[in-house]
Simulated scan of single mutants.
Amino acid sequence: MHDHAAEPSGAPCGHADHESVLDRAERLCRERDLQFTRLRRDVLGAVAGQAKPMGAYDIAERLSGSGKRVAAVSVYRALDFLTEHGLVHRIASRNAFVSCGHDHGERDGLLFLICRSCGGIDEMTSPAIESQLHHAVAEAGFTPTSRIIEVEGECGACRERGGPPGH
C-alpha cells in the first residue's frame, strides 16, 4: 500500500512509513485532546505495518498472542475511532482498512487505485476529480458523508511483470 498526499496534478507522492503514521496519530490525539489508547495504537500499528489492506478479524488475530485474545468487536471500535479521525481509511470493496499518514480536509475526495493482481492500494487526491464530483453532487442536491472513490485495475508494476493487459 502507498499513502499519497494531495498533489496539484493528482499524481501520487511518497509512501508514509509505519513510524510516521504512529507519530502523526499521537500528535493529532494530543492536539485534539483525544485518548490514543494502547489498543488504538496497536490496531493502527498493525494496519500501518502491512502493505495490503487488513480486515478487522485479521487485525484481531495479529494482535492476539499466547493466552491473550483480542476480540474483533474491540478492533472494530478502535477502527471506528481511527477512521473518524482520518488515521485509517476503509476500503469498502474489500471491507478492509489502510493507514493514512496525511492530513486531509473534510472536503477532500480520496481516490484509491486498487490492483487486482497484487492487492496493492495507492491513495491519492485529485483536485480535478474532486471539483467534478462536487459539481455533480451539488447539482443532484446530494450531501455526501464520504468522498472516497475506489478504482480497480492493474498497477504498473504488475502490468510490467505480466506483459500487455489481457495476456
Rank of each mutant, 00 (worst) to 15 (best):
H2R: 15
H2D: 15
D3Y: 15
H4E: 12
A5W: 10
E7N: 13
G10K: 00
A11Q: 11
G14D: 11
E19H: 08
L22T: 08
D23R: 13
A25W: 07
L28Y: 11
C29Y: 09
R30M: 04
E31A: 08
L34A: 08
Q35K: 11
Q35P: 07
R38K: 10
R41D: 05
R41N: 05
L44M: 03
L44F: 01
G45Q: 08
V47D: 00
V47R: 00
A48T: 09
G49W: 07
Q50S: 15
Q50K: 12
A51Q: 11
M54N: 03
A60S: 12
A60R: 02
E61I: 06
E61W: 04
L63T: 05
S64Y: 10
G65E: 12
S66F: 10
K68I: 09
R69D: 03
R69Q: 08
V70L: 05
A72W: 04
V73A: 10
S74T: 06
S74W: 04
V75E: 03
D80I: 07
D80G: 11
F81N: 06
H85Y: 12
H85M: 07
G86A: 14
V88Y: 02
R90K: 15
S93Q: 10
N95W: 02
D103L: 12
D103T: 09
H104R: 09
H104W: 07
G105S: 09
G105T: 06
G109T: 00
L111T: 10
L113M: 08
R116V: 07
C118D: 01
G119R: 01
G120I: 04
G120Q: 07
I121N: 00
I121M: 03
P127L: 00
A128P: 03
S131I: 00
S131E: 13
Q132T: 02
Q132E: 07
Q132C: 04
A138Q: 15
E139C: 13
G141V: 05
F142Y: 15
T143R: 15
P144Q: 01
E150I: 11
V151G: 03
E154Q: 15
G156I: 14
C158K: 02
R159C: 13
E160D: 14
G162C: 10
G163Q: 06
P164V: 10
P165V: 11
G166V: 09
G166W: 05
